[in-house]
Amino acid sequence: MEETKIVNGAWELSTFHFPIEGRGLKTMLKNMKDKKLVGFKCPQCGMVYMPGPFYCRKCFIRIDDEAEVSDHGEIMTFTIGYADVRGNPLDEPRIAPVVKLDGCDSWIMGVLEGVKPEDVHVGMRVKVKWAEERTGSLQDMQYFLPE
């Protein structure tokens, strides 16, 4: 069968505007300068989200009360990356855990250092390693370390 002609096209994402909810992230970044983690707590069911939505998913009401969250937590799940987003191999495998911090119900993703890939496990206790110089950026929390 004859092959068809190929016509190239593009999906111009640059022409779209992406308004994104910012309250949770803003509050979190602001407090991280002082090595503090702050989320929002639902007054009805007590769920704590960080940075999270401005409403509770379960109760479907607005939440405006801030709540402090610990910088210690538990690994809920993890992966070990061997390739980057384009599938190119990494120089060294990289451990990426998803952590539920104490006092928080939502999960947060990061990088885990100070442990060999074969020793990581679900349920492992970890703590945040804070950067020496903090600027109110996600880089302020450098990585997790075993507790």
């Binding site: 308004p19 994104i20 401005f54 009401i61």
Partner: peptide, 23 residues
């Protein structure tokens, strides 16, 4: 001047309040 999440939450919550219902 809103986000998709805020618009959908505000409108839905408003409708629920009008009708006196929950999700």
């Amino acid at each position: 001047e809103t986000t998709r999440e805020r618009l959908s939450f505000d409108l839905t919550r408003g409708l629920f309040d009008d009708l006196g219902i929950e999700r």
